[in-house]
């Protein structure tokens, strides 16, 4: 992600939630489906918004740091508008534009000076899988935590205790997004017994079959195709 073009792309995304008690089963299922080992996930995210008088409207972006890296660095992440139109409405995956830029560690100080304010900050803790399956798919399973004191990541508490967020994403271009959407949709069908995945903002809740599917997975280590 070093050049200007590679750092701006489309992203296909679906989200869902799962009860923490079934996360281990989901991990076993994902391990079987992906054939790769999971990676630990610990990400500090700060949402910055422009002050009221700045800009034509309120603008926002995320300042993200992967705390699992030996020397954590910061990335500015801007999530643009979702693709619109009849075609976009018919697909079950959200396609949106994303721009990212790695920045030096004083980025927060600069953006404060420019008139941006911290809206909220989160700490995501969990794991992720990265694999190729019709697209370069990333699945993240994380507990979303909030900070009770500014930047106090060691004292973070879950926003929704007992519930974890599952996100499936894949980068796409303007030309190939239909193939990427198809790849994500196909992959998500394998997870259906454990969780519903839908466009962000579309609430689907937990699935009734989750407990039985989890019990099955836990008993045979993911060998059964659901």
């Amino acid at each position: 992600m070093s050049s200007r073009l590679e750092s701006t792309f489309h992203e296909c995304v679906v989200q869902g939630i799962i009860e923490t008690q079934h996360v281990e089963a989901l991990e076993i299922l994902l391990q079987g489906l992906c054939g790769v080992h999971r990676e630990r996930l610990r990400i500090h995210e700060l949402c910055l918004k422009s002050s009221p008088n700045l800009g034509n409207g309120t603008s926002e972006f995320w300042l993200v740091s992967d705390l699992e890296q030996p020397e954590p660095t910061w990335t500015v992440r801007h999530i643009g508008g979702a693709m619109r139109g009849a075609g976009a409405d018919q697909i079950s995956v959200l396609v949106r534009s994303v721009a990212e830029s790695r920045v030096s560690k004083n980025a927060l100080r600069l953006f404060y000076a420019l008139g941006y304010r911290l809206d909220h900050e989160l700490l995501r803790v969990g794991f992720s899988f990265h694999f190729q399956r019709g697209a370069q798919i990333t699945v993240t399973v994380s507990s979303v935590n909030k900070m009770l004191k500014l930047h106090a990541i060691d004292e973070a508490v879950p926003v929704t205790p007992g519930i974890q967020l599952v996100e499936v994403t894949a980068p796409a271009s303007g030309e190939n997004y239909t193939e990427v959407v198809a790849a994500i949709t196909s992959f998500c069908e394998h997870l259906a017994p454990l969780l519903h995945l839908s466009k962000p903002g579309v609430l689907t809740g937990v699935v009734p079959t989750a407990a039985a599917a989890a019990a099955s997975l836990m008993s045979d280590g993911g060998g059964t195709i659901l």
């Binding site: 701006t8 603008s59 830029s101 920045v103 980025a107 941006y116």
Partner: peptide, 16 residues
């Protein structure tokens, strides 16, 4: 601040 050159795209999008 040092940033990837894509920060210019983000500044354009922020419109601030």
């Amino acid at each position: 601040l040092e940033a990837d050159s894509s920060i210019q795209v983000i500044m354009d999008k922020l419109q601030s």
